[in-house]
Design a protein around this nucleic acid. Sequence first.
DNA 1: CTGTTAGCGCCTTCAG
DNA 2: CTGAAGGCGCTAACAG
Lengths: 333, 333
Amino acid sequence: MDKQAITIYDVAREAKVSMATVSRVVNGNTNVRSETKQRVEEVISRLGYRPNAVARGLASRKTTTIGVIIPDVTDVYFSELARGIDDVAQMYKYQIILANSDESNSKTVEVFESLLGKQVDGILFMGNMFDDNIRAKFESSNVPVVFAGSVDATSTEASVNIDYVTAVEEVTAKLVKNKHKKVAFVSGPIEHSINQDYKLVGYKRALDAAGIEFDESLVITADYDYQSGYQLGSIVLGAKATAAVVVDDEMAAGLLNALTDAGVSVPDDFEIVTTNNSHLTVITRPQLSSITQPIYDLGAVAMRMLTKLMNDEELPIKTMILPHGYVKRGTTK
Amino acid sequence: MDKQAITIYDVAREAKVSMATVSRVVNGNTNVRSETKQRVEEVISRLGYRPNAVARGLASRKTTTIGVIIPDVTDVYFSELARGIDDVAQMYKYQIILANSDESNSKTVEVFESLLGKQVDGILFMGNMFDDNIRAKFESSNVPVVFAGSVDATSTEASVNIDYVTAVEEVTAKLVKNKHKKVAFVSGPIEHSINQDYKLVGYKRALDAAGIEFDESLVITADYDYQSGYQLGSIVLGAKATAAVVVDDEMAAGLLNALTDAGVSVPDDFEIVTTNNSHLTVITRPQLSSITQPIYDLGAVAMRMLTKLMNDEELPIKTMILPHGYVKRGTTK
DNA sequence: CTGTTAGCGCCTTCAG
DNA sequence: CTGAAGGCGCTAACAG
């Protein structure tokens, strides 16, 4: 009861050619007389021959498989990225091995190693947590890696992102312009490079530009989920903030509902801007104003870059910045 | 610039043993003197040897890789299932090749074939769309397949689900008990077996039990997303329904907001029950009452079943039914 | 245009 | 307990 009943040999015998010829037609090599090619193709479909990708991978040293490291498929932001990745991967005939890392360094190392063992042709990395150990492993491995919707200030890998600094700076400026003196920066774990080295920097720049002094107590962090956001409600209020830039839609939804439940009227008494423009932003009442970013495209472009890298092509630009925007909804005035 | 610098031969030479011995220690074969075993292990870690899974797969005919067919990673229901799958897969040292099908028959066939080509040891299928063609392919393939959170009334594959019929019957009964004569059944595509052969059946049973005649015009279908749900608002109202059982949380959120925006007060003038109890149910205002189901566990158990199948163990029960429940929130009285 | 011949890196009998 | 040898199914020169 083998997975594989018939092999290239069976086809060769049946078509009265050598296995090399069968291999040629299967791989679209043009050096085959169209007559024999047709004969082979006929036998292939008659026998239902399906090339064994494992054997092919061993012989050719290419698996047409890439590894995708994702913090959590369950996160809407990352799953949208993954969708973009998968669509262009399928387009280029690559399969995807997906592995959740939970943003844990040890798990990341583990799945990375196992991906290398599987001889993937490339790796797409999503996540914002790495230590020097991981960075070193990435750089010393011989497979191309590209970061999708994820940044590491000190990494030299290729990546696709938006300009997080400017995006956050812009929305913070909007809030400041609306006369808010105390704008909270509601963030995920501050040790994540994307928060510390990018979004927070944008936030500070806007404050600077407006001559507002940075206040550490307005930087409020928690996990990227609804419950955490909800629990932050009282903390944000306690800090006397009257507006907030939130780095995650789930958190923003939680914060919004907490404020509403506490009798704070949004946007009249408090304004909120979130960053990912996921479908959540439209489900909450009022709907969430948000930075917009082409999440799907981030994934798609990253995958496209990876195909080039795997094809030993040079990348004109290693760090790709896609355009962002802003959509005003009900949580801002 | 090979992916694989050092092979089993290198280790063998360095440790002054044959490659067979190295293979034995790598595979945990006990027939190795502990002394030589240690020597080999020392060399392995010193050289940083990492077994080539592709070569191993070719030689052993096992890839420790499974295929996961998912309608759309972006869907919260399925991504939660996928998370359960991945977690126990990692536990059993299996890798996952993920492929989106978009519930399209042609795409499903395509990814299924490509998964077989990759010599996966098993396949986990999520989705509710299949024609006889796919069914036949599943059944004639030599790799085990299990359905996770997905049903096909005429399939003989192993599967893990909840009792959709009863679950929907129960909540419909609740609504009927609240004096509603016209309860809408808001469904995804009715050609999906899960809707047609399960949930709709439960809905009808509850009606029957209450002596209410089934009214075709109260079966309202659309796509499984927020926008579709929102657009259904006027249709549901047009059908004079005063309550609805909705088969998808995104749709339910859309319907809820549409009704609210139309000035219909939920739950006073209209009651809604949804089915997946995803985090969306808690974000909407009022919060959505919902059937509860152990989505993560559905995936986890399905993966566990698959490991048994791949291990040629018999399954005591082919169709696993996990318990469901109900949580009352703000959209019901 | 087609066939022959080596491997790819590892597992797995079969001897010893 | 250990080594030798033959594949697994396919690709990739190399001849012809």
